[in-house]
Design a protein around this nucleic acid. Structure first.
Length: 199
DNA sequence: GGAACGATCTGC
DNA sequence: CAGATCGTTCCC
C-alpha cells in the first residue's frame, strides 16, 4: 500500500485512473440529488466492484413519479433499498434469469435510482470473461443484464455501498433520449449514452 | 391461491 | 422475432 508500485498502477497509460487528476471516489453527497441530475454526471465515471472496473457509458434515471419505476407504487420488499440512503446498490432479479444494477439517488425516503445499462471494461477482464463466456470484450458489459453478470452482482449485493470514481475524464454529455426495454413512459427522455462508444 | 408481467439476452 | 424462466405484484 505504501510502496511506490501501487501508485504507479494509477498513472500513465493505465486505463484505470487515466485522467489528469488523482482518482477521487464519489462521496455519498454526490448521489443525494435527483436521479435525472446524477445519471448524466455518471457518464465517464469508473464503476468498481472488487477487481472489476468499468467506464460508465449508458444510464437511465428513475424517479418515484415515474410510472415505469419500481418505486412508483411505494415501498415493497423488493424495492425497499430505493427508499433508503443514497449511494447504495439496488439490485433486482428479472425475467427469471437476469439481474439489473442501480445506484440509489436522492434523499432517504425518496425512492429514486439510476440504472446502470452499460460500461466499458477497464480492469478485471479475466473475471468478466469467465462469467460471461465467449463474447468480444466490448460485449462483456454493454447491457444491464450483461453488466450485472460481468461484475458478478446479484441479490446478495442489494443494499451494498456503491463504489464509483471520478478519474477526471471529460465527457461530452449528450441530450437524453427515450428509454428502452419498458412499456410505461418509455418516451420519457431519461436515457443517456456517451457519444463515442470508446470513452 | 392464481395469474400476468417484466428496467433482458440469445439464438434462430 | 420468439423462447427461456421465475420472483414480484396485484387481483379474486
Amino acid at each position: 500500500m505504501s510502496d511506490g508500485r501501487s501508485c504507479q498502477a494509477l498513472t500513465g497509460t493505465s486505463p484505470v485512473g487515466a485522467g489528469q487528476v488523482r482518482p477521487r471516489r464519489l462521496p455519498v453527497a454526490f448521489f443525494a440529488r435527483d436521479s435525472t441530475v446524477v445519471a448524466p454526471e455518471l457518464l465517464g465515471k469508473r464503476f468498481v466492484v472488487g477487481r472489476c472496473h468499468g467506464r460508465i457509458t449508458e444510464v437511465e434515471a428513475y424517479t418515484q413519479d415515474d410510472p415505469a419505476s419500481h418505486a412508483f407504487r411505494g415501498p415493497t420488499p423488493r424495492n425497499d433499498v430505493m427508499f433508503g440512503p443514497p449511494g447504495r446498490l439496488y439490485v433486482y432479479f428479472t425475467y427469471g434469469m437476469h439481474h439489473c444494477v442501480n445506484i440509489v439517488t436522492g434523499r432517504r425516503g425518496d425512492g429514486q435510482a439510476v440504472l446502470l445499462r452499460g460500461v466499458k471494461p477497464l480492469a478485471g477482464l479475466e473475471a468478466m470473461r469467465a462469467r460471461r463466456g465467449p463474447v468480444p470484450d466490448a460485449r462483456l458489459a454493454d447491457g444491464p443484464g450483461k453488466l450485472a453478470q460481468a461484475f458478478g452482482l446479484d441479490l446478495a449485493d442489494n443494499g451494498r455501498l456503491a463504489v464509483v470514481y471520478d478519474d477526471g475524464i471529460e465527457v461530452d454529455v449528450p441530450p437524453p433520449g427515450p428509454r428502452v426495454g419498458i412499456t410505461k413512459a418509455a418516451d420519457w427522455p431519461r436515457r443517456w449514452l456517451v457519444r463515442q462508444p470508446t470513452v
